[in-house]
């Protein structure tokens, strides 16, 4: 598990999660470290996306869900009655599988969140947009065409724009749900560079089906299978000397 000198940012305890009658998670317990990159790997349908979607409660946007167990961010229960979803989602940003920029200008995409949360001053907005685009490693590419449509960007650029949009509301945690699955190798490499830069300041949880990617970008790796957590260790350990034989079978390509 995670070393004692690292602070835990997210605590998940005995979490079971149902979409209607389908159980996607089975009593998952995991503690995710602050300002580190944690990768979640596993075959399709193992519940890895559901696990991160339970943290910002975006899973319930699409339909009815039911949970048992608990999710805590900084010690506060995310599913408690007093939880303000607006504030939770501001603190826990998310980047999705397919780039999903709004059909608006690059500038407006990044400014969307800050504007919602009440930033109206043009200069402040300009600063936020520039800082967010810089953090997403795309300021130099787009600084001269902020007023162009986001749809003119390549897939990889669109995904980095989505990262910038998430960063613009000043989150503490960034969830990434297979952010490179729709991208080519170049786009993937740029996203990975971005992730590497983010980990000094943000807690990053990245779901991926690409094991090399998990090995390259993460400090810790969790392996999931059919809704359960199988192994969770420092990434080096998982890929060099996994604790569980099923993990070894998966990372060596014997199934999945």
């Amino acid at each position: 598990m995670i070393p004692l000198d690292v602070r835990s940012k997210i605590e998940i305890k005995g979490l079971s999660y149902w979409y209607g009658n389908h159980q996607a998670l089975r009593e998952v317990t995991i503690s995710l470290p602050e300002k580190r990159v944690t990768a979640i790997i596993g075959p399709s349908g193992c519940g890895k996306s559901t696990l991160i979607k339970s943290i910002n409660r975006i899973g319930e946007v699409a339909g009815e869900i039911r949970i048992e167990g608990e999710v805590r961010v900084d010690g506060e229960s995310v599913y408690g009655e007093e939880v303000d979803l607006v504030d939770l989602r501001r603190r826990v940003g998310m980047v999705f599988q397919k780039p999903n920029p709004f059909p608006q200008t690059i500038y407006r995409n990044v400014a969307f969140g800050p504007r919602l949360h009440g930033v109206a001053d043009k200069r402040t907005l300009d600063e936020i947009v520039e800082r967010s685009l810089r953090d997403a490693a795309m300021w130099e590419e787009v600084k001269d065409r902020l007023q162009d449509s986001a749809y003119g960007l390549s897939g990889g650029q669109q995904q980095r724009l989505c990262i910038a949009r998430a960063l613009a509301v000043d989150p503490e945690i960034i969830l990434m749900d297979e952010p490179c699955s729709a991208l080519d190798p170049t786009g993937t490499a740029r996203i990975e560079e971005t992730v590497a830069k983010l980990k000094d300041r943000y807690t990053v949880i990245i779901v991926t089906h690409n094991m090399q990617q998990a090995a390259r970008v993460s400090d810790f790796t969790a392996f999931m299978l059919t809704g359960s957590l199988v192994e969770y260790n420092p990434t080096e350990r998982v890929f060099r000397n996994p604790e569980n034989p099923m993990t070894e079978d998966y990372i060596t390509g014997r199934f999945g």
């Binding site: 975006i58 979803l85 607006v86 501001r90 999903n100 709004f102 998430a166 509301v169």
Partner: peptide, 27 residues
């Protein structure tokens, strides 16, 4: 209007009405 557009807006902390007003209705 694709579900991914709604999710994107919710994910930065939009309320249901803001998602409707700023993302869904314009599209």
């Amino acid at each position: 209007v694709p579900a991914s557009q709604r999710e994107a807006a919710y994910a930065v902390g939009a309320t249901k009405w803001e998602v409707l007003r700023k993302i869904v209705l314009p599209q």
